[in-house]
Every structure is written in structure tokens, then in C-alpha cells.
């Protein structure tokens, strides 16, 4: 299990309508990966009192 914190806003900004989870394997079509505990938040809110505002990202 790896944990990632990606500072997306350092690379691009803008409006998006989805977050895409990619497990690409055109060669033999076999891949499997699990993405979990996803939080999307504003870095400026990472103060102690603001930590709970993270988006508890749930899938339907």
C-alpha cells in the first residue's frame, strides 16, 4: 500500500467534471489496482482546526 499526496494545483488549474482512475494494460488486458481513502482539499486548510474539512470521497 502506497500513500500519495499530489499537489495538483502546482501542475494545472481549471474545471473538471470527473476524476479518472486508470489501470491501463493494452498488451494483455490484465491489471488490478485499488484506490482508497481519497481526500481532495485546499492546502491552505491543512491547519489543525481545518483538517476535518477534507472531502470524504466515497464511491457509489
Amino acid at each position: 500500500m502506497q500513500h500519495f499526496d499530489i499537489n495538483v494545483g502546482d501542475y494545472f488549474t481549471g474545471e473538471f467534471d470527473s476524476i479518472v482512475f486508470i489501470a491501463d494494460d493494452d498488451a494483455d488486458g490484465v491489471s488490478e489496482a485499488t484506490f482508497s481513502n481519497i481526500n481532495l482539499f485546499d492546502e491552505g486548510l491543512e491547519a489543525p482546526m481545518a483538517a476535518p474539512v477534507m472531502d470524504n470521497f466515497l464511491f457509489a
Binding site: 502506497q2 500513500h3 499526496d5 494545483g9 482512475f21 484506490f35
Partner: peptide
Amino acid sequence: TVISFDFEATEEAEIYAISF
């Protein structure tokens, strides 16, 4: 904006990625 998540791959693949 920051996105954080846990990731675990159980198979080899060509591209594992997260995108907008």
C-alpha cells in the same frame, strides 16, 4: 488543491494513474 489517496496494485500493468 491537493488530492491524497492510498494505492495498491496487485497486477503488473502499463499505466496506473489518476487523472482529472
